[in-house]
Simulated assay, not measured.
Amino acid sequence: MKFRVERDALADAVAWTAKSLPSRPSVPVLAGAMLRVSDGRLHVSGFDYEVSNQVDVDVQADADGATLVSGRLLAEITKALPAKKPVEIAAVGSHLELVCGTARFTLPTMPVEDYPTLPELPASAGTVDAATFASAVAQVAMAAGRDETLPMMTGVRIELSGEGLALLATDRYRLAVREITWTPGDPDFSANALVPARTLADTAKTLGPLGGEVTIALSGSGTGEGMIGFVGGTRRTTSRLLDGQSYPPVRSLFAPSYTSEARVPVAALTEVVKRVSLVAEKATPVRLSFSDDGLVVEAGGVEEARASEAMEATYSGDSITVAFNPQYLVEGLGALNAPTAVFSFNDPVKPAVITPAGDDGAVIEGFRYLIMPIRVGR
């Protein structure tokens, strides 16, 4: 194997592939990035039996072939190579030689024959706008759980029905729901899939800036034995599905109507919550008191440390004081992608819902963030 490739294209391809490689692989070859050259293209791939990544790059090939090297090491090297210079790579015996300008590296290779075969991409289910998909995933994935002992909560549920695509994630203390449209291959297509949140977030973040459309490929539905694939440009990712057969009916947490509503500037409230919570210990809630006079944000910490700050807010309903985890509140506000947050309440101890609104005050449909309040004494 011998080829020449542009430095930036190589560094970008290797970095994306290496990002998902396991830091402590069950077998050494799973820490490797597979470089395979054929028909004037370089295929860079990684696989850990759960997630596979592959990207194609145009190269000037002198000889086809394949080699397997440490993905993370190769990513660090290609990132540090001299800019705007082509990279010459050749497999020589049991080593890979990499030359860029006056920089030269020799890396040991691993047995190609020991590397597992990448899974086949499932059948295409439809396409979705790349930028819209990336934005929607970013809004939802942050609400997924991080407790690996509860794998179901670490996923993002994708609900596909006709031209509707819904993303849902919850860690039991909050719930994010984003609804967008997509183009199914079959107008009557319907399926649900529970995808690991981290994999989905990394994939969407990478494919979004490429523009165009993302192809969603799916096999199985709702079980851990299924697989989902995403293709955008020259990149593709496959991931096993989590078992979502017992996923809770989280939509029922949204009340049919609410008795109180507040409208608060997102940027101002975010700053106030961060400032006031400086006196609070980790996981200590902040209290939001809404009334006709506006909003007062308060927090208390150890050794009688206290903080409060008043700010403008438009409120309708009986006065109410509700307490939230400040991190969950700030993350929810950040996910709105809008200048105004609309809070809807029924009771201080029942879930509150935050939705985005534009400069004209109109609610922006499609995203809802439900957050569970924390019971506190005054």
Rank of each mutant, 00 (worst) to 15 (best):
residue 255 A to Y: 01
residue 268 A to W: 03
residue 308 S to I: 00
residue 270 T to H: 09
residue 281 E to F: 06
residue 319 S to Y: 03
residue 303 E to Q: 15
residue 264 V to T: 12
residue 334 G to R: 11
residue 284 T to R: 13
residue 339 P to A: 10
residue 278 L to G: 07
residue 328 Y to V: 03
residue 267 A to S: 15
residue 265 P to A: 15
residue 308 S to V: 02
residue 296 V to L: 11
residue 257 S to L: 02
residue 281 E to L: 09
residue 277 S to N: 12
residue 323 A to E: 09
residue 262 A to T: 08
residue 290 F to R: 03
residue 320 I to V: 10
residue 318 D to L: 05
residue 256 P to L: 02
residue 324 F to D: 05
residue 342 V to G: 08
residue 304 E to H: 14
residue 284 T to G: 08
residue 265 P to W: 13
residue 307 A to K: 05
residue 255 A to R: 05
residue 288 L to P: 03
residue 293 D to E: 15
residue 304 E to A: 15
residue 256 P to G: 00
residue 306 R to W: 12
residue 294 G to A: 08
residue 257 S to V: 00
residue 335 A to K: 04
residue 332 G to S: 08
residue 263 R to V: 14
residue 277 S to I: 02
residue 326 P to I: 11
residue 263 R to W: 11
residue 294 G to W: 04
residue 267 A to N: 13
residue 277 S to C: 07
residue 330 V to E: 08
residue 263 R to Y: 11
residue 267 A to V: 15
residue 275 R to I: 03
residue 291 S to Q: 02
residue 328 Y to Q: 12
residue 310 A to V: 03
residue 286 V to L: 07
residue 336 L to T: 03
residue 292 D to Q: 12
residue 315 Y to M: 10
residue 262 A to E: 07
residue 342 V to A: 08
residue 324 F to T: 08
residue 331 E to F: 07
residue 299 A to Q: 09
residue 295 L to G: 07
residue 328 Y to E: 07
residue 283 A to Q: 13
residue 342 V to D: 05
residue 321 T to F: 02
residue 318 D to K: 05
residue 308 S to C: 05
residue 335 A to R: 03
residue 273 V to H: 06
residue 276 V to S: 03
residue 316 S to A: 15
residue 254 F to L: 13
residue 274 K to C: 01
residue 288 L to A: 08
residue 338 A to M: 09
residue 298 E to F: 02
residue 284 T to P: 00
residue 300 G to A: 14
residue 278 L to W: 04
residue 277 S to T: 06
residue 288 L to E: 04
residue 338 A to H: 05
residue 292 D to C: 01
residue 307 A to M: 09
residue 319 S to F: 01
residue 298 E to K: 11
residue 321 T to I: 04
residue 296 V to D: 05
residue 328 Y to C: 02
residue 279 V to P: 00
residue 332 G to A: 07
residue 255 A to S: 10
residue 325 N to E: 13
residue 273 V to D: 00
residue 317 G to S: 09
residue 328 Y to M: 13
residue 339 P to D: 08
residue 296 V to N: 06
residue 326 P to V: 12
residue 342 V to F: 08
residue 311 M to R: 03
residue 309 E to H: 01
residue 297 V to A: 06
residue 324 F to G: 02
residue 257 S to K: 05
residue 332 G to T: 04
residue 282 K to L: 13
residue 257 S to I: 00
residue 326 P to A: 13
residue 279 V to F: 01
residue 283 A to M: 12
residue 337 N to R: 13
residue 272 V to A: 10
residue 296 V to R: 09
residue 271 E to Q: 14
residue 256 P to Q: 01
residue 289 S to D: 10
residue 323 A to N: 05
residue 270 T to R: 14
residue 278 L to A: 12
residue 307 A to N: 02
residue 266 V to T: 15
